[in-house]
C-alpha cells in the first residue's frame, strides 16, 4: 500500500508541476515556410477590389513577428497587410490583372511564401431598354475576356422565373428567349437584378444592375 501511495504521489507531483500542453507556436518566426500556405480570394466590383484570405499554418492563430511582413502586390500598387486570427483583408481600387499576396521573410525561415491570383478587369452591366418578360431580353456588359475566366449571368426578381446561365463564351451580351422569364401565374411589373460574374479559381469580378420588367 505504501509503495502504491508513493507512486501515486509521484504521478500527482508530475501533473501538478506543469500544465499539460502541446501547442504549435503561434508566432510566425517559429514557422517554416514549408508549413505555411496562403489562400487568397478576390472579390472585385466596379467600386473596389477586396483581397482577402487566410494562412494555413500549424497554428490557427498565427501572428506575424520578427521581420515577417505581408504585402499585397498588383500591377499598380503594393500595400502592407495586417494579419488577424490568421486572416487578412484589404480593399483596393477597382482593378483587373494579376494579384500576389506575399509573405516576405528574413533569412533562415525557408524563404518567402506567395499566393497568386488573376482577377478579370472591372466592368459594368447594361440593362435592356423597356424589358418585357414576353419578349426577348438582352443584357450586355464588357465581355471578350480571356477564355480561362468562367462567366455566369443570372437574372432574379419576384415576377420572373430565375435564370442562371454559365456561359461557354463571354461575348459581352446574352439574350433570353421570349417568354423564358415569364413566371406562371404572375403578370406584374417588378425590379429584376442582372448579375454577371467572371471567375478564375478564387478570384471573382462581378457587376450587377437592376432594371424594371413588365409582363
Amino acid at each position: 500500500m505504501r509503495a502504491g501511495g508513493a507512486l501515486g504521489a509521484i504521478a500527482i507531483l508530475g501533473v501538478v508541476a506543469t500544465a499539460c500542453s502541446d501547442e504549435p507556436s503561434p508566432v510566425s518566426s517559429d514557422m517554416s515556410s514549408r508549413d505555411i500556405t496562403i489562400t487568397v480570394a478576390i472579390d472585385g466590383t466596379a467600386e473596389r477590389t477586396r483581397v482577402s484570405g487566410y494562412f494555413a499554418t500549424p497554428s490557427s492563430q498565427v501572428r506575424l513577428v520578427g521581420g515577417d511582413t505581408l504585402t499585397v502586390v498588383t500591377e499598380t500598387t503594393a500595400r502592407h497587410l495586417a494579419l488577424r486570427d490568421s486572416t487578412f483583408q484589404i480593399d483596393l481600387p477597382p482593378y483587373g490583372g494579376p494579384v500576389a499576396v506575399r509573405l516576405t521573410r528574413p533569412e533562415g525561415r525557408g524563404g518567402d511564401v506567395e499566393a497568386r491570383a488573376r482577377v478579370a478587369p472591372p466592368f459594368v452591366v447594361r440593362p435592356p431598354d423597356a424589358a418585357r418578360a414576353s419578349a426577348p431580353v438582352t443584357v450586355t456588359w464588357e465581355g471578350g475576356t480571356r477564355r480561362d475566366f468562367a462567366t455566369t449571368l443570372s437574372l432574379t426578381g419576384p415576377c420572373i422565373t430565375p435564370q442562371s446561365r454559365p456561359l461557354g463564351l463571354d461575348t459581352g451580351s446574352y439574350t433570353f428567349n421570349a417568354g423564358e422569364l415569364e413566371k406562371k401565374g404572375v403578370a406584374a411589373r417588378c425590379s429584376v437584378t442582372a448579375k454577371v460574374v467572371k471567375k478564375l479559381d478564387t478570384a471573382v469580378q462581378s457587376a450587377t444592375v437592376d432594371f424594371p420588367i413588365t409582363p
Binding site: 509521484i10 508530475g14 508541476a17 500544465a19 499539460c20 500542453s21 507556436s25 517554416s32 508549413d35
Partner: peptide
C-alpha cells in the same frame, strides 16, 4: 520516477510547437 518535461518540438516540416507534459 515522476517528472515533467517541457520544451519545443518539430511541428510540420520545420515549425515549432511548445510542449509540457508530466511523465511517470
Amino acid at each position: 520516477w515522476g517528472s515533467t518535461w517541457a520544451g519545443t518540438r518539430l511541428e510540420g516540416l520545420g515549425s515549432v510547437a511548445h510542449v509540457a507534459r508530466p511523465a511517470l
